[in-house]
Each structure stands twice: as C-alpha cells, then as structure tokens.
C-alpha cells in the first residue's frame, strides 16, 4: 500500500517530471512501434505473395482419369502438399478467356482447344521454400503423363531471398531500436530518480529496508513505462491512420504485438528503476 501511495504521490508532486519521463519513454517506444508497423506490413505483403506460390504440372491430352486420381492420392501423401486442383482443358480455356479478353477473337476462331489440362499443387505454409518447390516439381516430372512442370524458379528464389532479408532486418534493426529505446527509458527513469535521491537518502538514514525503499520506485518506473507504452501505441495508431488515409492502405498490427510493446515498456521501466535505485541505496 505504501508503495502504491508513494508512487502516486511522486507523480502528483512532480507531474512535469513524470510527464517528461513518460514522454521520453513514449517517443522511444514510438520509434519501435513504427518499425513494428513497417515490419508487420512487410511480413503481410510477403505472406500474400507467398500464398501464390504453387507448382503447375501440364498433362498430356490423352491422360486417363485413373492416372490423375492415382497421382493426386500419391501427392496428397506428401506433407508439403496442402491441396491439388485439377484444371481440365475446358476450364483452362475458360480461365484464359476471362483473364485475356483482348484475345477473345482468337479463342472464338479456334477449332481445337490448344490449352493443356493441368494439376495445380498448393503447398502448405512453411513449405513454400525454393528447395521444397523444386522437390515437388521433380516428383511431378516423373509421371509419364506430365509434359511440363512450371513453378517460376527465379521468382520463388527472389521471394525467399526477400523474406530472409526481411527477417534479418527485423532482427538487427528491431534489436538496435529496442536497445536505444531501453537506454532512453533508462536515462529518463534515472533522471526522475535523481530528482528524488534525497528521499532515498532519508529513507536509508532512518532505517527503511532496501525492499521498502525500492518498491515505490519500481512501481513508479513501471507506471512511467506503462504510460509511455500506451502513448507510444496511440502515436503509432495515429501514424497508421494518417498513412492509410493519405498514402496507401496499411494493415494494423495484431493486439498481442501492441500488448507486448506496452509490456516491454513497463518491464523496461521497472528494470531501469531497479538499476538506478541500486546506485543510491549504496550511498548512505
């Protein structure tokens, strides 16, 4: 109870200092929030592209239904394969007409449908990597009724590279931003505690235990971090709205990312306080 009372009293006694500390924490976390928003949207964009990764096997015109059925059963036994769609010659022509209306005259004048039937193999998430795609393509090419297998090797390779670059950038830049945010939060809290070093001195002098002294400061640091985290989330959301309305549509981050950011601010606040108070606890 004393810890809560003292923490709230400290905010009341020096609202400007608390506000400035929370503001510094908020700005530090806001940068992390913007980075998170960019990372999330990049991740979403790559996921949408990745969902389009599939292997297409063009089959001979004289293929029998039993052969297709057997191949489908065989392929569905592979853990990498999520779904197989058989596209008949007629469906292929229909799709071509819908996709390429400028060639309608050409399609109408044809006596024979030149488009082959095909098997479209959709891979499970996590298996849309270049080596898995190539393995599935190789497996398909051994069927005697398969004429050709296409999966856009170069395109898949580039997508995979882009994903790896994205992951590395997230790790290093995210780590660097988090570190800088941590240092700023630590400094903000240390300034707030420096202003109250005399209280710590008196508490030590009259015989308060270290735990008793520490608790209100930890709570105050946590509150500052929490407030800063909430403000940072609000700033990030405002930025998201502005960009989405004025530049291009973005996806908003999932709630657990936001909660994790606010929790990180709170934890940073508590740790920074613990570190700063420790220094003054040794002075008297």
């Amino acid at each position: 109870m004393h810890a809560i009372r003292e923490a709230l009293a400290a905010v009341r006694r020096a609202p400007l200092l608390t506000g400035l500390s929370a503001g510094m924490v908020a700005l530090a976390l806001y940068v992390v929030g913007l980075f998170g928003l960019a990372t999330y949207n990049l991740h979403q964009a790559l996921t949408r592209v990745e969902e389009r990764v599939e292997v297409v096997a063009y089959v001979r015109d004289d293929v029998r239904d039993e052969e297709i059925t057997m191949a489908e059963q065989d392929l569905l036994g592979m853990e990498e394969v999520e779904e197989i769609r058989f596209i008949s010659k007629e469906q292929a022509l229909l799709a071509a007409r819908e996709d390429l209306p400028e060639f309608e005259d050409l399609f109408t004048g044809m006596d024979v449908n030149p488009l082959p039937a095909s098997l479209e193999i959709v891979l499970r998430p996590g298996f849309r990597t270049p080596d898995v795609v190539a393995r599935v393509a190789n497996r398909l090419s051994v069927y005697p009724f398969v004429e050709d297998v296409r999966y856009g090797q170069e395109w898949v390779d580039r997508l995979y590279l882009l994903q790896r670059i994205g992951a590395m950038a997230t790790m290093f830049l995210g780590g660097a931003f988090a570190l800088v945010a941590g240092l700023i939060i630590g400094t903000a809290i240390r300034i707030a505690i420096f202003a109250r070093r005399e209280e710590i001195y008196i508490m030590r002098l009259v015989g308060a235990t270290n735990g008793f002294i520490r608790r209100p400061f930890l709570l105050e640091g946590g509150l500052t971090g929490l407030l800063g985290g909430i403000l940072a989330a609000a700033f990030t959301f405002a930025s998201y709205l502005v960009v989405s309305r004025a530049v291009f549509q973005l996806d908003w981050m999932p709630l657990d990312w936001i909660l994790m950011g606010i929790a990180a601010g709170t934890v940073f606040g508590v740790l920074a306080s613990a570190f700063a108070v420790r220094k003054y606890l040794k002075e008297v």
């Binding site: 209280e199 002098l205 009259v206 015989g207």
Partner: peptide, 29 residues
C-alpha cells in the same frame, strides 16, 4: 536498517525534504 532504527542522525545541513511541511518531513520518516 536494523542499526539505523536504534541510532538517530542529524547533520549540519538539516537534509529536510523541500516542498514538504515540518510535519510531513517527520511523517515521512
């Protein structure tokens, strides 16, 4: 802290908490 509760200490520069009344300084302790 156990020792500090048996020993009182005063200084030349008083070391009172500014912005608090005389009573609040004692109440704080």
């Amino acid at each position: 802290w156990k020792l500090r509760r048996r020993v009182g200490m005063v200084f030349q520069d008083f070391r009172l908490l500014p912005g608090r009344t005389a009573r609040e300084n004692v109440e704080f302790a």
